[in-house]
Design a protein around this nucleic acid. Structure first.
Lengths: 179, 179
DNA sequence: GACGCTTTATATCGATTCGATATATCTATA
DNA sequence: TATAGATATATCGAATCGATATAAAGCGTC
């Protein structure tokens, strides 16, 4: 996932490690640590996907190479492994995906969340049925259900938006699109 | 975090690895893998915190030792490092914490989320101000804000509950508690 | 009752990531 | 120019990931 993040952020403009970290925090990926980021930079450099532009003082800015751009497109285009952080990272780079690919990715994510919701609902019902009497465990399970529901409705908004984009972009329907 | 999870689940009753994994999934910790779980079991066994009860076929159930129970209490009592999964795991074992410790933990978590919310709000405003025009990045940042807000109100409910527990349990006020 | 099939269950392993610590460089300011 | 705090990179053992291997148990079915 870090590879995608680094390549994606460098696609816009060169940055050094510290800047990358700062942007990741802004985007909500506070978990990525320097202990994974710096090794990732060296890994990517060794693979020729990014290259260093030596600069002032201690900073070492990197830029994306052509090879790196290809690899970024490849990772972004590959079917996503359904994990929360993974999906959100992908979302941050949706601008680099074609609208149809966006829609596919969103639908896939949605169905994953729906099945997660079902599991969460069952777990909650089982807990209530078992009547263990632990309010906090029940609250945790209730929260899992609620936040998954909220994620699904968030996705539904995105799906609606992606559909409208496609309608606007490819107006080759009988109605004869405008613009 | 896995250590806390394993010890906490075994505190209730003996289980084998596969059962532990299943319960973790129910509780919403789908991310823990067998590749971390089984090594963790051996680590904990070597430290004398759990011990195996050989059983039918391939299953190897473990039970918590006295030493393990002490260590569990120690970990649960130690100040939590603010990370989402960490906190939720703790919540799953709140039943083993004293009400005042519960309240302290909840408040600490709340203030952490409030500062995260502020950062998320700033990031969203900055993105809007920058006017990059990428709807998906903006949506991601908006979602970060919304879900953090929702987490805070979830915590507020828990805090209210924890307060009511303490009021009910230690009714040594002037009003003279009932029960 | 032996044949496949799926589920249950543990193990293993290289690569990645964590988390804590160390250290160097800038910047302000007194 | 000392000192402090923010910026920036590096390092390293331990934990975790994720994918794969293996094997026993359960189960229909012919």
């Amino acid at each position: 996932m870090l590879d995608l993040a680094v390549l994606g952020l460098l696609r816009k403009r060169p940055r050094h490690g510290y800047e990358l970290k700062a942007r990741l925090v802004e985007l909500g990926f506070a978990r990525v640590s320097f202990g994974s980021l710096y090794p990732a930079l060296r890994r990517l450099e060794k693979r020729g996907l990014i290259e260093a532009l030596r600069q002032s003082g201690r900073r070492k800015a990197y830029r994306l190479t052509d090879l790196g751009e290809q690899e970024f497109a490849r990772i972004l285009g590959s079917t996503d492994h359904d994990e929360d952080g993974r999906f959100n990272m992908r979302l941050a780079f949706f601008q680099y995906l074609e609208p149809p690919a966006r829609l596919r990715s969103l639908k896939r994510r949605r169905s994953h969340l729906v099945s997660r919701l079902q599991n969460a609902q069952v777990a909650l019902q089982d807990e209530i049925a078992a009547g263990s009497g632990d309010h906090y465990t029940a609250a945790l399970l209730q929260h899992n259900v609620a936040s998954t529901e909220s994620d699904i409705s968030f996705l539904d908004q995105l799906i609606a938006y992606a559909r409208s984009e496609m309608a606007a972009e490819a107006p080759r329907t009988l109605t004869g699109g405008k613009k």
